[in-house]
Nucleic acid binder design. Structure first.
Length: 920
RNA sequence: AGACACGUAGCUCAGUAGGUUUAGAGUACUACCUUGACAUGGUAGGGGUCGGCGGUUCGAGUCCGCCCGUGUCUACCA
């Protein structure tokens, strides 16, 4: 074994071994209990980000844990076709070739997307492998695969027949860049600096003006009313009259509507029903004309004066403002914070736009989805996330499911020449069903479905629905969904609706909601901010130059380049070192405490890398001992140290089990960290060293001890495998000849179980030895006695049990503390010493030639002070009658004991103080 | 504006049905140690009036209220 653990040498090797051996494949034929998790499908053409890394670490830990605990574990893997994102990428590729998708035509274009999917689709799946995720690759799914498309088709048709899918003409969120609608959830509302312009609208045939305030002056070309509050005394008299709209010179009515707030602005509102959601509603109430002034690409259409036609939105705004200025109709301009709706993919400003779209009526099916959470068939963890869920579900509006894209599930609807719509699985089917002969021309709806429509079917469509129920019956409902809170409404709620509706089961029994990973300053990681980190760069490392390159390539705003560069240099002056997958996974697990936001700290990764190295070297030590031992024989281990370390191991097992059942990955990680470092390495191995070097120990006893070391190591590897799969596999395989497991891999070995009590007396003995050693070390440390300096020690007031322990473990104490002489004496004859008590026993280190008295005085005073503070607080409690009366008896007793102990201890120290003071 | 979180050592975080730790861990810091598993190490140590104020209680980092600060989500007044 190498001196230092090098993850890069082993990771891909073991993953390949696992995958080729089929260890991660579900076993539907087995009679084991099942445990199933669905991967939240990542974008097929996307790349891994920290969120994926975090989530994969958590899911994989759970899955491996369950698999090792004897479950038939299925981690269903797959990807999402990500309609908009993928289409955007391919369109951009075409753009660089100088062609548009229209040049290619729909069929060719889709071919190109498939090509791109094939060529880049492996990126994400390769990355998932690098994380060590034990997914079942034999069942890899894709939302656009034939099977899943079949499921989508079936669902759409059924919902249509149930009248839950319908077409409607409404204002929708329109992305002028991508030229498609978006659902409400795909809108990012950002607060930006804008202006509030006050426009003067002349009242027709009067010299008076109404002043309206607007943040979007260009829409005035589509105004069809001015509204005031019916109770507003200032304007009551104008209601029913009209104003003459500047520029277009259209006459528009002055109407009264409660919606208008007298207090805000001037109390007059321009109404543009075609381009504002609120105005649209007002328009409906008042039967106003709806004038759409925009083309699909955001330019002005023929509804506006000639000189405006064809202008884009921002030019139109400038021109409107300058015209108004010329006409002296621009009252004033003031700076104003406006909330701008932007497409979450394109980033372009969205327009409310009147079009005919397909909608899903979610009123009924949302009720069922609420009920299953209320009745706890499906539960959120942490529970308070159900508030987010309920809040969203109660306010839920019909879901706009059509998208004006080419990449996606094309809507199975056909139109005849009169526009009559037929919905069915194919044109042929529809003709048959409706007795339409070849004469009747049918044209298919060009739109595709929202990607989330197919993702909503994920839990059951990946398990073979509608073709077969075999897997569905076995693995559904899935056990837990592991996801971020940001997609509770986007995805979780829709799965709950679709699944309860179609399968009449919840999609998952538990919804474990984890936090989101931010950068070290608490900022959300995003491409545009230039603070993204690729998890693989933490695993493999990356130099500064490449990191900067990665962060600034393909940036939407080139302006940011310099800033991102500097910020990256500042944060990673030497790039990122390679830490390996196990260290990264441990870091992720240790951050999963249940908090909402998680700041990613490289210092933690470094700490866990060191931890991996620690485990590596512990194994290396064991290996070396075996190499140096003649005639090693494999037997069942026994002995004091073996009893003790197994007892400590049991505590770690229990803590880990409890923590994982509560999704406290941080506590689980901590228990393993503490066991390996603070018990196994700091004590067990140190004790073993002494025993193995001991002259007084028989070879057969050493042989037993070596067996203990092998078995405890093997058990430790199984305990920590779910958290750090690669290093544990590497060591486990290295030791295979020694531990002689029947299994091929630690990945399919069983998770260690808590045993019946190990020789508890032995375990207690070792804990006592640890305390003895720590106590003396404290004195040596504080007195600045060099660790290598030998000391003499005196023991007073030892009872028979103490004497037995000292005698029995003399060698451990002597070696670890460099004690050269140890005597039992009675109270009277003690020389001036530093003192430490263990139970009733006093351990004395004579000052003579070792310790300067004044230093010891300082140490004693510090201790007295500390103990006195505590004693004071306990005394005041015990003097309080209310405390005695109300507190549990057990606690009162405890505090009394503590109080006695403290007084006694303080008393001893004070005597010491006096004794030593004599020397000064 | 509303809802929901969060504010504990320089930094990143635990503190799990109010009283067992004398508020903990990692990291950073200080001193000593280059002793053959590991300097990606060892031993010892310093560092927090648990955001502020008030309340409930015998007892509050832990429960309640208000305030200050931070963040996220939702809804927006043109």
């Amino acid at each position: 074994m190498n001196k230092n653990f090098d993850p890069s040498e082993i990771e891909t090797k073991w993953y390949k071994f696992w995958e080729e051996s089929g260890f991660f494949e579900a076993k539907p034929e087995s009679n084991k209990d099942t445990f199933c998790i669905m991967i939240p499908p990542p974008n097929v053409t996307g790349t891994l980000h920290m969120g994926h890394g975090f989530q994969n670490a958590l899911i994989d830990t759970l899955i491996r844990f369950k698999r090792m605990n004897g479950y038939d574990a299925l981690w269903q893997v797959g990807t999402d076709h990500a309609g908009i994102a993928t289409q955007m990428v391919v369109e951009r590729q075409l753009e660089s070739e100088g062609i548009t998708k229209e040049d290619l035509g729909r069929e060719e274009f889709i071919k190109r997307v498939w090509d791109w999917k094939e060529s880049s689709g492996n990126t994400i799946t390769k990355q998932i492998r690098r994380l060590g995720s034990s997914v079942d690759w034999s069942r890899e799914a894709f939302t656009m695969s034939p099977d899943m498309s079949q499921a989508v088709l079936e669902v759409f048709i059924k919902l249509y027949k149930e009248d839950l899918i319908y077409q409607g003409e409404r204002l929708v969120n329109w992305d002028v860049e991508l030229q498609t609608t978006l659902s409400d959830l795909e809108v990012d509302n950002t607060e930006e600096n804008g202006s509030l312009w006050h426009l003067k609208y002349q009242i027709t045939n009067e010299s008076k003006y109404l002043i309206v305030a607007t943040t979007r002056p260009e829409t005035m070309l589509g105004d069809t009313a001015v509204a005031v509050n019916p109770e507003d005394d200032r304007y009551k008299k104008y209601i029913g009259k009209s104003i003459t709209l500047p520029i277009t010179n259209r006459q528009v009515p002055i109407i009264a509507d409660e919606y208008v707030d007298e207090e805000f602005g001037t109390g007059c509102v321009k109404i543009t029903p075609a381009h504002d959601f609120n105005d649209f509603e007002i328009g409906k109430r008042h039967g106003l004309e709806i004038i759409n002034i925009l083309n699909k690409d955001g330019t002005l259409n023929e509804e506006v004066p000639k000189s405006f036609i064809g202008l884009d939105r921002s030019s139109a705004r400038k021109k409107v403002l300058s015209e108004l200025e010329k006409l002296n109709l621009l009252e004033k301009t003031e700076p104003y914070k406006v909330t701008i709706p932007r497409g979450d993919r394109s980033g372009s400003i969205l327009e409310p736009f009147l079009t005919k779209q397909w909608f899903m009526d979610v009123n009924e099916i949302s009720k069922k989805a609420i009920d299953v959470v209320k009745s706890e068939e499906s539960t959120f963890h942490p529970k308070n996330y159900e508030n987010t869920y309920f809040a969203w579900m109660k306010e839920i509006r019909d879901w706009c499911i059509s998208r004006q894209l080419w990449w996606g599930h094309q809507i199975p609807a056909w139109y005849d020449k009169d526009g009559k719509v037929y919905v069915g699985s194919s044109e042929e089917e529809i003709r048959k069903e409706n007795n339409l002969d070849e004469q009747v021309k049918l044209k298919r709806d060009e739109d595709v479905l929202d990607t989330w429509f197919s993702s909503a079917l994920w839990t059951f469509s990946t398990l073979g629905w509608p073709k077969s129920r075999k897997l569905l019956d076995r693995y559904h409902p899935t056990d837990v969904l592991v996801t971020g809170y940001d997609i509770i409404s986007l995805w979780v709620s829709r799965m709950l609706m679709m699944t309860t509706h179609f399968i009449n089961e919840v999609p998952f029994r538990k919804i474990f909601v984890h936090g989101l990973i931010n950068d070290s300053s608490g900022q959300k990681m995003s491409k545009s901010k230039g603070n993204i980190i690729d998890p693989l760069d933490i695993i493999d490392g990356i130099d500064l130059k490449s990191l900067i390159e990665k962060r600034i390539s393909g940036l939407m705003q080139p302006k940011m380049e310099e800033k991102i560069k500097n910020q990256t240099i500042k944060e990673f002056p030497e790039g990122i070192k390679p830490y390996g997958t196990d260290a990264l996974r441990l870091t992720f697990c240790s951050l999963a405490s249940g908090s909402r936001e998680v700041r990613f700290d490289f210092k933690r990764v470094e700490g866990y890398r060191n931890f991996c190295n620690k485990l590596w070297n512990a194994s290396r030590f064991i290996q070396m001992q075996l190499d140096n031992f003649e005639n090693f024989e494999r037997t069942k281990p026994s002995g004091i140290l073996d009893d003790w370390i197994n007892a400590r191991m049991d505590i770690a097992i229990e803590k880990t089990n409890n923590a994982l059942s509560d999704y406290r990955f941080d506590l689980a990680t901590q228990s393993i960290y503490e066991f390996i470092w603070y018990e196994l390495c700091d004590w067990y191995i140190e004790f073993c060293k002494i025993n193995l070097n001991s002259q007084s120990l028989e070879a057969s006893e050493k042989n037993l001890l070596l067996n203990s070391m092998i078995e405890i190591l093997e058990k430790t590897l199984r305990l920590s495998h779910p958290f750090m799969p690669f290093i544990t596999e590497e060591i486990w395989q290295n030791f295979k000849d020694l531990h002689q497991s029947k299994n091929e891999s630690v990945a399919i070995s069983s998770f260690p179980q808590k045993k019946e009590k190990y020789g508890s007396k032995n375990a207690d003995d070792i804990e006592w030895v640890k305390q003895f050693i720590s106590g003396v070390r404290n004195i040596k440390g504080e007195m600045k006695i060099s660790p290598s300096k030998t000391i003499t020690s005196i023991i007073q007031s030892a009872n028979e049990e103490d004497k037995r322990k000292v005698k029995k473990h003399k060698e451990l104490l002597f070696e670890l503390l460099k004690i050269k002489e140890l005597n039992f004496i009675d109270e009277k004859n003690a020389p001036p010493s530093a003192i430490f008590t263990l139970g009733g026993m006093k351990i004395l280190i004579p000052l003579e030639g070792l310790i300067e008295p004044d230093k010891e005085i300082t140490r004693i005073d510090k201790l007295i002070n500390k103990l006195q503070t505590e004693l004071n607080s306990i005394t005041s409690k015990l003097n309080n009658d209310n405390f005695i009366e109300n507190a549990p008896q057990e606690l009162v007793n405890q505090q009394r004991d503590r109080s006695n102990y403290l007084s006694n201890e303080i008393n001893n120290l004070e005597i010491q103080h006096k004794e030593i003071n004599k020397l000064i």
